Simulated assay, not measured.
Amino acid sequence: MLLIENLHAEIDGKPILKGLTLAVAAGEIHAIMGPNGAGKSTLAYVLGGRPGYEVTAGSVTYKGIDLLELEPHERAAAGLFLGFQYPVEIPGVSNVQFLREALNAQRKARGEEPLSGGEFLKLAKEKAKLLQLDMEMLKRNVNVGFSGGEKKRAEMVQMGILDPEFAVLDETDSGLDIDALRVVGEGINSIMRDPAKGVLLITHYQRLLDVVRPDKVSILADGRIVRTGDADLAKRLEAEGYDGIMAEAAA
């Protein structure tokens, strides 16, 4: 579903990704772990098309399409969703307004009819209930005055409404307490655990993976994937840290 081959990328002339190769199949939740500065967020931003990140070599193929040739809004219309480590605030724009416009723009790009106000509100209430987010929160400006946990739950509601085929989630567990972590993890399972969908889940911690239960885990270090295994690899990282596994990968 997603194939990354020998990807090199830099920002402000500084190389960050240095030959990253990775494949994520349909129906797969693939977790990416790694030390700080390894390039995890850079990978997410490159896939999402964030300005300022220059790809200098390699390729990214999504459902047989050259992803790097698409503009960010075209990637979204093609079914790609990017969840941010630090969701941004948008003063003056309500969540309901933002989400309805985003969904209908994507539906238009796919040749589908837009949802009416009533149809959209019904969908929004369903997804908000799933993520245990008060519907009143969706009437407020996007992320303004939200706690860290509320921002992440609101972002998962956004993912539920847009219903992407592939999600890149950059440290979705950042800033979550135990209860919010469980809700968000179960939301990822409910929305994205599907034979026709895929997830690239970037995280530092095993605790989210206890809920989501990835099919594969890869370690990203110094801009490359150095080790891939099953969910037990994440448990070993939690118990032993990176040093031993990194030494094995370098041998």
Rank of each mutant, 00 (worst) to 15 (best):
residue 25 A to S: 15
residue 205 Y to V: 06
residue 59 S to L: 05
residue 191 I to S: 09
residue 96 V to F: 10
residue 157 V to F: 07
residue 182 R to D: 06
residue 119 E to F: 01
residue 232 D to K: 13
residue 59 S to E: 15
residue 97 Q to C: 00
residue 237 L to K: 06
residue 81 F to I: 05
residue 103 L to T: 03
residue 129 K to G: 15
residue 13 G to H: 14
residue 207 R to P: 01
residue 108 K to Q: 08
residue 199 V to A: 07
residue 51 P to D: 15
residue 120 F to K: 03
residue 107 R to P: 00
residue 71 E to I: 01
residue 181 L to R: 14
residue 60 V to P: 12
residue 92 G to L: 03
residue 226 V to C: 06
residue 94 S to V: 03
residue 241 G to R: 05
residue 179 D to L: 11
residue 61 T to F: 05
residue 113 E to D: 11
residue 105 A to W: 00
residue 169 L to P: 03
residue 197 K to L: 06
residue 104 N to E: 05
residue 80 L to Q: 10
residue 30 H to Q: 08
residue 155 E to F: 11
residue 162 L to N: 02
residue 147 S to C: 09
residue 121 L to V: 02
residue 87 P to E: 12
residue 174 S to W: 02
residue 57 A to E: 15
residue 58 G to Q: 13
residue 162 L to G: 00
residue 171 E to Q: 05
residue 105 A to P: 00
residue 100 R to I: 04
residue 40 K to W: 01
residue 195 P to T: 06
residue 240 E to L: 10
residue 195 P to D: 13
residue 190 S to F: 05
residue 102 A to V: 03
residue 153 R to W: 02
residue 208 L to M: 13
residue 136 E to N: 10
residue 108 K to H: 03
residue 49 G to A: 10
residue 243 D to N: 08
residue 131 L to C: 14
residue 8 H to C: 13
residue 117 G to L: 04
residue 46 V to R: 11
residue 205 Y to A: 11
residue 75 R to A: 04
residue 140 R to H: 14
residue 71 E to P: 00
residue 237 L to W: 02
residue 155 E to K: 08
residue 82 L to T: 06
residue 173 D to C: 02
residue 97 Q to N: 07
residue 219 I to L: 11
